[in-house]
């Protein structure tokens, strides 16, 4: 009896995106030559870093029943401003923390718009996306911003360097490469995940997303927590900006454009819903990895990049069908649990 009871609980905690990710990944591994090689997988993981950070941020805001559309703008803006500072001769040790701080401030700005001025998150962050993107365009004069590599920017080269290279065989496809950027991304996601599951952050986010009134009546400071989540989102977006900047050693002012929508797709694939109250951090990570599996597989096959969006659309639809199926199964099991619960002591 107890076994029967625990099984669905465990099942409910596997992010829904697991299934679609496995399906896409296995199909790509079987059908696409060179896809399942450590070289390609290393590259794919590195490429997925920025989107993973943004998807996690998006998942947090979606679970809370909000949305942060400004993150793509923040990637562009913080990227441009950091590059501009280094271009002006400032040290990376000043520019990078300044970029992160800018992300935090922008998150605070979003949070205040949403909580204090009562602007719906979709509208508020849509507006601030425009502001951030315009700042990026204006400062850069719509040109790519670069800087002269020097002692002062050695932090950038360090971040871009490889932490670990393992040659398992001949050629690039058999070489495992772990970049410092990947390590930073993993650490950042791990910290968020840790805060989410081990502090009150997670419960508060779920409570806010399920019903703000419930949260308020339970004594949760609704305004403060919503602002905090927007600030985390801004911070993660700025970190995404750093990853992009380090990888390309320059910043295009439109680098972050549309990233919020990709993050949205990844988060939704990961089991987050637009109305909030459910979803998960690991789900968002898997969602982002699913998107990059598709990109990587299609580029290896030499398919034109414009088809990638089509494929992603198809996978999103299939993913939602699978998610719905999983959710339905869950609620059927729920009925069984509550029925057995009512009957009292016998099976306890």
């Amino acid at each position: 009896m107890s076994k029967e009871k625990r099984f669905p609980a465990a099942l409910a905690r596997i992010p829904e995106a697991t299934w679609i990710f496995l399906i896409v990944f296995i199909i790509a591994s079987v059908l696409v030559p060179n896809f399942f090689s450590i070289g390609n997988l290393s590259t794919m993981l590195l490429q997925a870093c920025t989107l993973t950070l943004l998807s996690v941020a998006m998942a947090l805001t979606l679970m809370m029943g909000s949305i942060d559309l400004s993150m793509g703008g923040v990637v562009s803006m913080s990227g441009v401003i950091m590059a501009y500072m280094m271009n002006a001769g400032l040290s990376a040790w000043i520019a990078l923390p300044a970029g992160l701080l800018l992300g935090l401030v922008f998150g605070l700005f979003n949070g205040v718009l949403v909580t204090k001025l009562k602007i719906p998150p979709f509208i508020a962050t849509f507006g601030s996306m425009g502001i951030a993107q315009s700042i990026a365009n204006t400062i850069s004069e719509e040109r790519t911003v670069t800087w002269v590599a020097s002692e002062k920017t050695s932090l950038i080269s360090f971040l871009g360097s490889k932490a670990l290279v393992v040659e398992a065989g001949e050629g690039a496809s058999n070489t495992l490469t772990i970049s410092n950027l990947l390590i930073i991304t993993v650490i950042a996601v791990a910290i968020v995940w840790f805060l989410f599951s081990r502090t009150t952050l997670g419960s508060n986010i779920y409570a806010l997303g399920a019903n703000q009134e419930t949260a308020r009546l339970s004594g949760i400071n609704v305004t403060r927590w919503r602002i905090i989540v927007f600030m985390i989102s801004g911070l993660l977006a700025a970190l995404g900006g750093i990853v992009v900047m380090v990888r390309s050693n320059s910043v295009q002012p439109t680098i972050g454009a549309n990233m919020e929508f990709q993050a949205c797709v990844a988060a939704v694939l990961g089991g987050n819903i637009m109305t909030g109250g459910r979803g998960s951090v690991p789900g968002a990570v898997l969602g982002a990895l699913t998107l990059y599996t598709i990109r990587s597989a299609m580029s290896l096959l030499g398919i034109d990049t414009s088809w990638v969006q089509v494929a992603i659309g198809v996978v999103l639809v299939i993913g939602m069908i699978i998610n719905n199926y999983v959710t339905q199964r869950e609620s059927q099991r729920a009925a069984v649990i509550s029925r057995s619960a009512g009957k009292g002591g016998a099976e306890a």
């Binding site: 669905p8 649990i337 509550s338 029925r339 002591g345």
Partner: peptide, 18 residues
């Protein structure tokens, strides 16, 4: 209060009564 459900169970898995 005589309810024998594991406290680790997610609330979404419970019926209204529970």
């Amino acid at each position: 209060i005589g309810v024998y459900v594991n406290a680790g169970t997610l609330v979404k898995q419970l019926g209204v009564g529970t």
